[in-house]
């Protein structure tokens, strides 16, 4: 933005400013790191801004894991799972991976039980959040902190 603005200046001083802005941009981290939404922004993207209530959702994840490449996660939601009252979707988001999204599961009344389990990657110790969308349009969530220990010896790739 500042580059475009300065371009309209004709003086030598303006050109120097342009050069300075260019260097600044180069020094910043890669674009994808900049574009990662916060945990809250990711949740808002899923709910469309509808307020999220705490409760109904149980997020089971070990507090300390041996390896972040496969962290077992179970999400259970209190719901009768009938045609009129069920969980539509369950979403998982993380705080510190390069991307906030983990997965979105679509259940519906035929699931019979509002519970899913999966294995996910966590790049480092961080917060994880599960958000459930119910058939009445309400959103419920639960979060958990996970400590990821690092392997002592990392194998070379060759």
């Amino acid at each position: 933005m500042s580059v475009a603005k300065h371009k309209f200046r004709v003086g030598r001083r303006g050109l120097i400013l342009v050069g300075g802005a260019g260097l600044l941009v180069l020094a910043l981290p890669p674009a994808r790191a900049l574009t990662r939404p916060s945990l809250q922004e990711a949740v808002n993207g899923f709910t469309g801004g509808t307020p999220v209530e705490t409760g109904k959702v149980k997020l089971d994840v070990p507090p300390l894991v041996e390896n972040g490449n496969a962290v077992g996660v179970t999400v259970t939601v209190e719901s009768p799972m009938t045609a009129g009252d069920h969980v539509r979707r369950i979403a998982l988001f993380n705080e510190k991976n390069p991307q906030a999204d983990v997965a979105v599961f679509t259940l519906g009344s035929r699931a019979g039980r509002a519970r899913i389990a999966t294995r996910i990657r966590l790049a480092t110790s961080q917060t994880l959040i599960a958000v459930a969308e119910l058939s009445d349009g309400s959103y419920w969530s639960s979060s958990a902190n996970v400590i990821v220990t690092l392997a002592a010896c990392i194998e070379d790739l060759s």
Binding site: E66, T149, L150, A151, A152, C153
Partner: peptide, 8 residues
Amino acid sequence: WRGRLGGS
């Protein structure tokens, strides 16, 4: 073998 190396 009873010990740990870092977290492992």
